[in-house]
């Protein structure tokens, strides 16, 4: 009696052959998937490292603040850099209010009926429309029909419509995260729908909304196809150091298009310049994204519920 208990206890704590095999399989599977994940992440580091290494000879503050020179074979990236900022800011001014209000409509106003489903479907499809089709739309609607011509305004409007789903999606998510009880408490005090949104819902979801807006910025900064035919040009000289050098009815240069131009259309570009342009583009986009992440993490720690 006594001895059998001892044996079974020992059995319980020593691994059986099947258990051991299972453990091996589990570890193998875990490592396999880990390798898959890492293989996906490796390119990111590799690319940034490669671009940075190749760009090192040209990178300096001067590179950022001088215009392209000698038919874009030398010089810096001031004109395209400023152009990208203009495009992003104008498109943000258009897309942010429309996007946030659209999300408020979808989350706070819309009833659960066929019409709302169609609106949601439209948002999903707007996100799925290829960027080059947005470009065609920009040409047809803004450049030709509205008579804006190829201008910063036309390009920014195209970008705004293209990036709208980004803002709508993250704002909707942020609004959904505000507990229903908050709204109910507010309504019970006699507040109207807009008062509830203005005083309770929006302040409590501002972090998510800002994240969406920031992501819109990073998306808009990197796009090339939609601005190619609606307002961005291969070359335009502007005053160096003057941040008001562009007018919104002018055409402008843009970093993304500039990278495309100097890497495919212009022969004999100084070795490091395309890499420098690429790293500035990637760097600013990732910096903006990092800002969104920091903001999200910071505000999550301050959440009140």
């Amino acid at each position: 009696m006594n001895s059998t208990t001892e044996i079974s206890a020992q059995d319980m704590f020593t691994e059986t052959a099947v258990g051991k095999q299972n453990r091996y399989i589990e570890n193998a599977v875990k490592i396999f998937f880990l390798i898959m994940t890492c293989l996906m992440i490796l390119p990111l580091l590799l690319i940034i490292g490669y671009l940075f290494y190749k760009a090192l000879p040209v990178l300096s503050l001067d590179f950022l603040f001088t215009n392209p020179q000698d038919n874009m074979r030398a010089g810096g990236i001031w004109a395209p850099f400023l152009g990208t900022i203009y495009l992003v800011v104008v498109s943000l001014l258009v897309a942010a209010p429309i996007g946030v209000f659209a999300a408020v409509y979808l989350n706070e106003y819309a009833r659960d009926n066929w019409f709302t489903r169609i609106v949601n479907l439209a948002v999903v499809n707007l996100a799925g429309v290829p960027s080059i089709v947005h470009a065609l739309f920009g040409v047809g609607a803004f450049v030709l029909f509205a008579g804006l011509g190829e201008s910063i305004l036309a390009a920014s409007l195209t970008l705004a419509i293209m990036t709208l789903p980004v803002i709508i999606a993250s704002t909707t998510e942020a609004l959904k995260a505000v507990p229903m009880a908050f709204r109910e408490a507010c309504w019970n005090l006699g507040a109207t729908r807009w008062q509830t949104i203005r005083r309770i819902v929006l302040p409590n979801s501002i972090s998510g909304i800002l994240t969406g807006v920031i992501l819109q910025v990073s998306r808009a900064a990197g796009e090339t196809a939609p601005i190619m035919f609606t307002g961005a040009v291969f070359y335009k000289a502007i005053a160096e150091g003057d941040i008001f050098a562009y007018n919104i009815t002018d055409q402008c240069m843009a970093l993304s298009l500039h990278l495309y131009t100097i890497s495919t259309q212009v022969p004999d570009v100084t070795e490091g310049i395309p890499y420098g342009t690429a790293i500035v583009l990637v760097g600013s986009v990732l910096l903006v994204n990092a800002a969104a992440i920091v903001l999200r993490v910071y505000l999550r720690t301050r959440k009140k519920w």
Partner: peptide, 23 residues
Amino acid sequence: FKIVIEFLAAIPSVVWGFIGLTL
């Protein structure tokens, strides 16, 4: 990992094209 994936998604398409063209 999620942050890294977000970064990967943020790289502009023209930069991917440039990487394809060079590296």
